[in-house]
């Protein structure tokens, strides 16, 4: 694990402890409902970050795998009719994750032959392919009529809780994987790819392998989150299960919090999702909502493209190095000089 400092572990224990206690402290259904979506996006953004933040390959097609996961759970528990429902879909999640990850390997291998803008284009196109498949494979997905899952037999008063903990579980899995990757050899390989892929290849980094593994891990978690989502929503349509807005939401949160950091995507999600739900509530999920979303998006991209956590840690690094009032011009160079944990001079 990366720099397993006491504060780092403590921070994780406190945050995840608080998250586990949350639905008991605030049992109101609408609050837990928002919390479920917050955790879902925190998981999506964290999973996206594993590829997009660490290796610099900007995927715009993660919603495709979210949809695949959602449809996998939906199809398994309607058509194949694995008897009853209850908690079974949750137990099927690891399998969904593994299958999505394996299926993605050949796709990743093809898509990762190109870089930067072209990779983004290919992944974006992949999203539309999967959406079109969901529309066209009528006998499996019921096309635009949508697919209904068997209603979960949970008690009404605590109906939300199993979904909350399922989301929390997948999110935690993605989070700790991300944390582990960041400090591992794989993480080092991914960062070297992000900084200069040709040079990384030149010094013997097995770039293709590293990229494909990151891609598979990233979309595996995304698929699992899709599975939980489908069971929670109970009725899925191609345009909502494979929604470009899901990708863009996750990307936006990773950028807001700070891509390439462990905590950034989570911070971004915890800020944006409640705000987003509030906006949807205020603006009635109408067309205005899309406009509001686009504006927030543009503001973040233009004014905070590096994200919250990198900006704060730069600030702290400057403080620690005893130069609190750095002129703005020196901002770009100062953190680099004091990088190793802010311990320089």
């Amino acid at each position: 694990m990366s720099r397993l400092t006491r504060t780092g572990v403590l921070r994780a224990v406190v945050v995840f402890g608080a998250l586990a206690a949350f639905p008991f402290v605030f049992p109101a259904q609408w609050i837990v409902n928002i919390a479920i979506f917050t955790l879902m996006y925190a998981g999506l953004a964290t999973a996206w970050n594993l590829l997009g933040g660490f290796s610099g390959y900007l995927s715009l097609g993660h919603a495709a795998f979210f949809g695949v996961g959602a449809y996998a759970i939906a199809i398994a528990f309607t058509h194949i009719g694995i008897g009853g429902s209850g908690y079974k879909p949750f137990f099927a999640l690891p399998l969904v994750g593994i299958v999505v990850a394996l299926v993605s390997v050949p796709i990743a291998w093809v898509a990762l032959r190109v870089r930067a803008a072209t990779f983004a284009i290919v992944t974006l196109t992949l999203l539309f392919v999967v959406q079109q498949l969901a529309f066209n494979l009528h006998h499996l997905t019921h096309g635009s009529q949508g697919l209904a899952l068997p209603p979960p037999p949970f008690d009404v008063s605590t109906f939300e809780q199993p979904f909350y903990f399922a989301m929390l579980g997948v999110f935690a899995l993605a989070f700790f994987t991300c944390w582990w990757v960041k400090g591992s050899k794989l993480g080092l390989m991914l960062f070297s790819i992000r900084d200069d892929e040709d040079r990384a290849r030149g010094v013997g980094v097995r770039v293709t392998g590293a990229k494909v593994i990151a891609f598979a891990l990233s979309v595996g978690f995304t698929g699992m989150l899709g599975g939980v989502w489908a069971y929670y929503i109970q009725f899925i349509y191609p345009q909502f299960a494979v929604d470009p807005l899901i990708t863009i939401g996750a990307v936006l949160m990773a950028f807001l919090g700070g891509k390439g950091t462990v905590w950034g995507p989570t911070v971004g999600a915890f800020i944006l999702v409640p705000a987003q739900q509030y906006m949807a509530y205020k603006l009635g999920a109408s067309e205005l909502y899309l406009l509001g979303y686009a504006s927030v998006f543009l503001l973040i991209m233009l004014f905070l493209p590096r994200g919250i956590i990198p900006s704060i840690s730069d600030h702290l690094a400057r403080r620690r190095s005893g130069r609190p009032d750095e002129p703005p011009g020196a901002v770009a160079s100062a953190p680099r000089a004091t990088l190793p944990g802010g311990m320089a001079p």
Binding site: A116, L245, Y289, L290, L291, A294, F297, M301, L302, P305
Partner: peptide
């Protein structure tokens, strides 16, 4: 957008523009 980030950030910025136009037209 800074030149070294323009290629990746512009993808997202123009996507946001697309959403904005879609939102405006929907209204």
């Amino acid at each position: 957008l800074r030149a070294d980030e323009r290629e990746e950030l512009s993808l997202l910025v123009t996507w946001a523009l697309a959403l904005g136009i879609e939102g405006l037209l929907s209204v």
